[in-house]
Design a binder for these strands. Structure first.
Length: 377
RNA sequence: GACGAAGUAGCACAAUGGUAGUGCACAAGAUUGUGGAUCUUGUGGUUGCGGGUUCGAGCCCCGUCUUCGUCC
């Protein structure tokens, strides 16, 4: 494998901040904008790698925190990394574990050195530092690694937000020192923090960009704040984000979020939402979200979405899928997951095409008009 | 046939003589860098039937029907 990692732009929209490009990696190309399915613990839950490929995924996520606890770096090293262990040969991105500092509140200690976790599996204590996160992410072996950051909760006062931002910058420098440009063939992305304070965000962009990374992510959004506030912060930030780097909005989003992000210049998205709600029977359609548990589908011969190319939509009725969920059959979770992942990826492909063909705004308005208007269903 | 026990929401069960509840099921929501079936809310009762006692009965008394058990 050659250690390549480049980002190039095919087209920048004149209608909005959106752009279409491609990331070249040693394991293949990632067209952008891209939606990345999340495979936290070495699997996109319920789906085989072949299914994830068929859904059209060009890259998936793995998670440092979870993989460090289980199977651990010893096992990962034995198998020569996660790609080989899970039989996924396309690109991969790993989160740094920083988010779990925020989302798993059972951490005992956080200081400038790092974070002490109590494992959610057996309570054992683990130290995670920027250097340790880099070491673990090298064992996993993803094409894209993320810096170890501190994501502060919402709401947070300005002092708390600044402290988390300062610490994230300091940790980002340590990550870059520990993991120089394409060490081990792996790229490293910085993460912008600053909570809902635009001045902090802008300072974070500047100081993180100066460190020098292969991509820049927006962290700390979609953590419970109102959607308009998230978009307001993005509006303020995006014009100041470097144009020559891929821009990654972490942990977002929903179908509508893809439009909101792309038109503001985001190139990469990841989110557990599509696969999580799928396991609870909620699926996307071009006319909005529906629950496959609803009684009204009992006698329905229709597929989830007649325009969808996934296996579930080509073969199964809503009536059958409802039965599977009511009977708690695993196939229901699998088919809903496959559909939602396929839906997000196809939607992003269409968004990319609409950008290139200079009709993004029209496509956005047409899609959201139907998707968000649930009254007509 | 005799004796005993039990009949309460679709199901399984609670409820000193004082506003009939819980779980499951059913129904509708929620879920955003995943702690793998979670959380929230809601619908649903002539307490087998008929009398009686009581200010008041799911509960006490009588009758009756049904089910289960034991014995003949």
């Amino acid at each position: 494998m050659t250690d390549k990692f480049t980002f190039s732009l095919d087209y920048s929209s004149e209608e909005c901040w959106g752009r279409a490009g491609r990331i070249q990696t040693r394991r293949g190309e990632i067209p952008t904008p891209v939606f990345m399915p999340v495979g936290t613990a070495g699997t996109v839950k319920t789906l085989s790698p072949e299914e994830v490929r068929t859904a059209g995924a060009s890259i998936i996520l793995g998670n440092t925190y979870h993989l460090m606890l289980r199977p651990g770096t010893g096992v990962l090293d034995h198998f020569g990394g996660l790609h080989r262990m899970m039989a996924w040969d396309r690109p991969m991105l790993t989160d740094s574990g920083g988010f779990q500092v925020f989302s798993l509140k059972k951490l005992n200690k956080i200081n400038d050195e790092g974070v002490e976790f109590a494992s959610h599996i057996d309570g054992a204590r683990y130290w995670l530092t920027p250097e340790e996160s880099m070491r673990i992410q090298r064992s996993i072996g993803a094409e894209i690694m993320m810096v170890f950051d501190e994501c502060c909760p919402y709401p947070a006062d300005e002092k708390t937000a600044r402290a988390a931002m300062e610490r994230s910058v300091a940790w980002a420098k340590r990550c870059r020192v520990d993991h120089p440009h394409l060490r081990n063939g792996q790229a490293l992305f910085g993460i912008v923090q600053g909570s809902m304070y635009l001045p902090l965000r802008l300072e974070s962009i500047k100081r993180t960009e100066e460190i020098g990374f292969e991509g820049l992510a927006v962290g700390g959004l979609s953590v419970g704040e109102p959607k308009p506030l998230m978009l307001e912060i993005l509006d303020g930030m995006m014009p100041h984000m470097p144009k020559n780097l891929p821009r990654y909005l972490m942990g977002v989003g929903t179908p509508e979020d893809l439009f909101y992000g792309v038109e503001r210049g985001i190139d990469m998205f990841d989110c557990v939402h599509p696969t999580r709600i799928a396991r609870h029977a909620t699926v996307f359609t071009t006319e909005g979200r529906i629950s496959m548990m609803n009684a009204r589908w009992q006698l329905s011969d229709a597929p989830i979405d007649a325009n969808c190319s996934c296996y579930a939509c080509r073969n199964f009725s809503r009536g059958y899928l409802r039965h599977l969920f009511k009977a708690k059959e695993i196939l229901g979770l699998r088919m809903a997951s496959l559909h939602n992942v396929t839906f997000m990826i196809n939607l992003m492909n269409n968004i990319r095409q609409s950008l290139i063909e200079k009709r993004f705004i029209a496509f956005r308005d047409q899609f959201l008009g139907r998707y968000l208007d649930k009254e007509n269903k």
